[in-house]
Design a protein around this nucleic acid. Structure first.
Lengths: 108, 108
DNA sequence: TTCCATTGCTACATTTATCGTAGCAATACG
DNA sequence: CGTATTGCTACGATAAATGTAGCAATGGAA
């Protein structure tokens, strides 16, 4: 029943198990989440640049995802402005890098 | 703040860009998609067993994901019944196996 | 100073996705 | 026959995402 009950600190979506991998899969399995990490892989982007990079996705979701990703410790908002990956976030992104090559082969 | 990565993307859900990585991120960024692949990583499961494994997710969305994953060539329905990973799907699954270890460290 | 562009971020009504429950036809066993 | 699976679907209820508009704050130019 309680899906995202009212707390500010998030229980990740379907992960009632407490298993970290489930929490992570649930977090990443949200719309734009993987995409955001992907677009930040090279350099930080401002919120609007990120929106452009994500094909003008609605700022509502993007902000929601950015908040979640920040709370997860993967993304941070730099003082000079702009969102960037934390060391942890960069590490996560590295994990997904093989997907690029895989996707190229998968296309055929 | 210049847009450092500014002119690189267009294309959203449904992989209209033709860029395989976007299509893949798009596919995987749907609810239960990563989870399904994860639950099938060891052995094939029947649709109901998969549902149980996925915390009783609604069959509606599970069937939808399974259809998409089958069309993508990652999952197949064996003759004896039960869904399992194709060689390609297994390969994809291997790609994000490191997530497991990462998730364990991330929890702390 | 005033003007204006940009930052991160939010409101809100509309559309889309997912949930939850129930149930179908087909198959297999006793 | 009954019953217990299988994969799969219908459909109303609920949650999430979209698209548009706009806010307060900041930082230059003029």
């Amino acid at each position: 029943m309680s899906k995202q009950a009212g707390s500010k600190s998030r229980g990740v979506r379907g992960s009632r198990t407490g298993r970290p991998i489930m929490a992570l899969l649930d977090l990443l399995g949200q719309r734009w989440c993987l995409r955001i990490l992907w677009e930040l892989r090279d350099a930080p982007l401002t919120s609007r640049a990120l929106r452009t990079a994500c094909d003008e996705a609605s700022p509502t979701v993007l902000q929601a995802r950015l908040t979640e990703l920040r709370e997860a410790g993967f993304v941070e908002l730099g003082e000079a402005g702009g969102y960037g990956l934390t060391p942890l976030g960069r590490e996560l992104c590295e994990t997904f890098m093989p997907l690029h090559r895989f996707a190229e082969r998968w296309k055929k």
